[in-house]
Nucleic acid binder design. Sequence first.
DNA 1: TTGTGTTTTATTGCCTCC
DNA 2: GGAGGCAATAAAACACAA
Length: 266
Amino acid sequence: MKRFNSSDSSAAFISISSSKEERTQKTNQGYSRDFQAMLDSLEEEDYSETANHVSEKKRRLNLHQVKALEKNFEVENKLEPERKLKLAGELGLQPRQVAIWFQNRRARWKTKQLERDYGTLKASYEALKLDYSHLEQKNEVLAQKVKELKAKLSEEKVDSSHSVKEEYRVSESDNNASVHSKIHDFSENNNNSSAITKDPSNISSSHELMNWFQLSDSRVILGNRYQVYQPYLMKPEDQSLFSTEESCNFFSVDQAPTLHCYFPEQ
DNA sequence: TTGTGTTTTATTGCCTCC
DNA sequence: GGAGGCAATAAAACACAA
């Protein structure tokens, strides 16, 4: 095991005085006032003790030593034995001190890295949250629109059933001609591609609404930020989407949309 | 001056690798 | 089994407000 006796420990406390050149260098480096004051007091202590004096106190490394260690840490944050001995010799430290410094430095770096990662994650979470709330708002608007249009559709159904009864009374032959003409008009509308580009908010009749939903790209509903789906032309049997009460909960605010009913089985 | 919080240096115990 | 790494922690040094 790597345990050290008391003589090793006390040897580690030997302070190393910095040279005159180093001191001159320090004052010209533009450190903050507080940091410079700290260094100055450190220097004073260094001067007050001779290099041979063994202090029992825990001593901080001087600026030169810290800078050299930092520089080495930037190059490689792990310390091979040769480099450790070389550094220790150069800086007048015990190899053990150099090893400990690297160990503590790695721990500090790891903490900082965790903080950075946390910051990044937090930022992306906030962005996603904002995105989600925008989508939620959009969803609510669309759901409201669907509700209104459904109400309109049921009103029109009631009106048309009344008129059909009246028409039966007038003439059966006229009635047949009228129905055929309506069917023809409807299929003409269905084939009109201009319906795709129509803004749903401008749609006035229920037939137009059906056309719009059948022909428009699914992107209109889902948005294009996450995934773009192929346009899907609704089959007549799928038209129950609008007659069944919220069969797909597609516009549900509380729950993510289930797409199984929106896409045909493969 | 003193209390308190932060940073730095060092120790301890455990783990992995060769 | 020894060397070295890491996490947790102690303790000294330091900063700073009251």
